[in-house]
Design a binder for these strands. Structure first.
Length: 595
RNA sequence: GGUCCUGUAGCUCAGCUGGAUAGAGCAACAGCCUUCUAAGCUGUAGGUCGCGCGUUCGAAUCGCGCCGGGAUCACCA
């Protein structure tokens, strides 16, 4: 790494000039600001105490010595306390020759150690996936790919919330108002059909509450005594008692939902290594609670409910088990965490869950720590912000929820319209054209969401996301397609970088900045892995694509008279295309070879 | 009220562990298609980085205090 070379030599220079050894890590190296000449900048202010000289003088002295002793450093200039170093073209040429032949540059092979388990998606079986889930799924998928590129053995798991009173509501609505409908008979996607029943239940339930209030009950009584609620609770009890008919209906309706979800996942290009179901893990949580009571970590109250007092940690008292012995949300999560730990012994357990559950995961970690599970510190809640619309928050009551399938279809449709208007696909076979619209529509959607810092709330503007200009997925896809087109047109016989042991000519600014950017790719992946943040990759690849477009307009790639430089530029284009492709892979975005 | 997140151009967002004159895109305006894909490129304009104090050679970045936005503090999941 060039930065290591610089810091080592700066440290040595300081020692020989001023007789004092400093830590190499203390040498601050930055990319040189665009408006100044040079590649890297060493900030000398921290060394003034040692040199006891003015900043300019210190920088000048260090620079002189570096230029003399370090072959990679071709020149330097000093502005105030900033020592700008110019790296030799031959260094960049050599660096490029290392990078260029590797089409998987930046993507590491997965190792078998260090399993990292990442949970995402985690849908509810009575609600179709919406825009919020899309952010969740894309984040989970992308972070998984980034971790893989960092050499981790990643296991992607899903946890389906398939039990509880809410499930019974949609089952009941199906029984009462469903007329034996099925996805086949209605032509509806399974998850949509079940979601419809859930809404229907809610509607009828509210009517019953109103009736109850009219007949003199207070609100709470009316809610409790509504016939539908009583029936739903009754059904939950039957479910927990393994009533055959209830389980049969439950299994059937769940199978509809799963089929529907799978279609959406497939469209998004998402696969899981394993799917957990709460119905088969919730009992484990109860055992944990029992253990905790015996250890004296939890308290059982007179009515039989179990609590944990976390006031010392600045949190509240938390219910862990209801008086009737049924489990609550956190009970289940304790169970699934333990199960997952047993299944994988992960070095890290990541949960991609919205920031409205920050408190929940705080509590979960602390409870597990209280139970002396050391691995509780390996739990990491990858919290992400809400997705809002330009008009405001999504609210199911107001019907402003953006359905995932509808959105995907809408994006693809817009891609089709825009592309057709531009006449881009006039000579495409139908199948290839359709595939392109899909790639573009999804690319626009995915990129728009992933380029934003996960922890921030974001505004999703359908209009703007479909704008194919600027910092968008399609712009990057376009750049890739354009490079592929150039490579197709090149005489590939003459394009073999392996024939060259070096390119020794002076690099143009754009060529050099492209190589510099390519060189930064592995570092960007490492950072994205460290912060579990795909937006770092997104911003990187945009910069790369933009840089290439500038290059493309300034320099001829195909018609370069100098043969060596022509080969160099083709290799540079090819390498850029590879890095774009690899970056987009980390974001879960496909890249077309022509568009 | 407690805790956590957040506030950068008209809008959507970058700005990593403090560094030089705060960056992109959209929108606006002005140019560029006989030449490798114009879904593009180049330029102009647009900012008290919410406010104040502090730390330091140096703060959008770190600390503290205000102000604004969001989330959460359920026998919902």
């Amino acid at each position: 790494m060039i930065s290591e070379i610089i810091s080592r030599n700066v440290a040595e220079a300081i020692e020989s000039l001023y007789g004092q050894r400093i830590q190499e890590a203390q040498v601050q190296i930055e990319k040189t600001n665009k408006d100044f000449s040079g590649d890297f900048t060493v900030v000398v202010f921290p060394f003034l105490r040692i040199s006891k000289k003015a900043p300019e003088v210190t920088a000048q002295e260090i620079g002189t010595l570096l230029k003399l002793n370090v072959s990679e450093i071709a020149d330097f200039n000093v502005i105030k306390g900033f020592l700008n170093l110019v790296i030799s073209d031959s260094y960049w040429g050599k660096k490029f020759l290392e990078i260029a032949p590797d089409s998987d540059y930046g993507l590491q092979k997965t190792t078998e150690e260090n399993p990292v388990v990442i949970e995402f998606s985690s849908p509810n079986t009575n609600k179709p996936l919406h825009l919020g889930h899309i952010r969740n799924n894309l984040l989970g998928w992308s972070v998984s790919q980034i971790l893989k590129a960092n050499g981790k053995n990643v296991k992607m798991v899903n946890l389906v919330n398939d039990r509880g009173i809410h499930i019974c509501k949609s089952m009941l609505a199906h029984q009462l108002f469903g007329n034996n409908e099925t996805p086949e008979s209605t032509g509806m996607k399974g998850d949509k059909l079940v979601g419809k029943y859930y809404v229907e239940f809610d509607k009828k339930y509210k009517e019953q509450i109103s009736e109850g209030i009219e007949s003199g009950l207070n609100k709470e009584e009316a809610e409790q005594k509504a016939p539908l609620m009583i029936q739903a609770k009754d059904m939950l009890k039957k479910w927990e008692d393994n009533d055959t008919e209830t389980l049969k209906l439950w299994t059937l309706m769940n199978s509809w939902v799963y089929k529907g979800f799978d279609q959406t996942y497939e469209k998004l290009g998402i696969l899981f290594d394993k799917t957990y179901h709460e119905s088969s893990t919730y009992l484990l949580g109860k055992e944990l609670v029992e253990q905790g009571v015996q250890k004296g970590v939890f308290v059982k109250k007179e009515d039989g409910s179990v609590w944990i007092d976390m006031t010392e940690e600045g949190l509240d008292e938390k219910l862990l088990l209801r008086a009737d012995g049924t489990s609550v949300y956190i009970t289940q999560d304790m169970g699934t965490a333990l199960l997952r730990h047993k299944d994988y012994s992960p070095e890290k357990l990541i949960y991609v869950v919205g920031n409205e559950q920050n408190y929940h995961f705080d509590v979960l970690k602390k409870i597990l720590a209280r139970l002396d599970y050391q691995w509780s510190q390996d739990i990491y809640h990858l919290s992400y912000g809400m997705v809002e619309l330009p008009e405001g928050k999504m609210k199911s009551r107001e019907g402003t929820v953006v359905d995932a399938d509808d959105l995907i279809d809408e994006m693809i449709e817009t891609a089709r319209i825009t592309t057709t208007e531009l006449g881009k696909t006039d000579d495409f076979p139908e199948e290839e054209a359709e595939n392109l619209y899909r790639i573009l529509g999804l690319g626009a959607l995915k990129y728009f969401i992933l380029k934003v810092d996960p922890k921030k709330n974001m505004t999703f503007n359908p209009q703007e996301s479909i704008d194919f200009n600027g910092n968008t997925g399609p712009f990057i896809q376009y750049t890739h397609a354009r490079i592929c087109s150039v490579l197709r047109k090149a005489d590939l016989e003459n394009f073999s970088i392996s024939q060259h042991s070096e390119f020794d000519f002076e690099l143009f600014e754009k060529e050099k900045s492209l190589i510099k950017l390519l060189n930064e790719f592995p570092e960007t992946i490492a950072n994205a892995g460290k912060f579990l943040d795909p937006s770092l990759i997104a911003n990187y690849v945009y910069e790369l694509a933009k840089e290439f477009n500038g290059f493309y307009h300034e320099h001829s790639i195909l018609n370069e008279p100098d043969e060596t430089r022509s080969i160099f530029r083709l290799s540079l284009s090819n390498c850029t295309a590879n890095v774009i492709k690899n970056s987009m892979k980390l974001l879960g975005i496909e890249v077309p070879i022509r568009m």
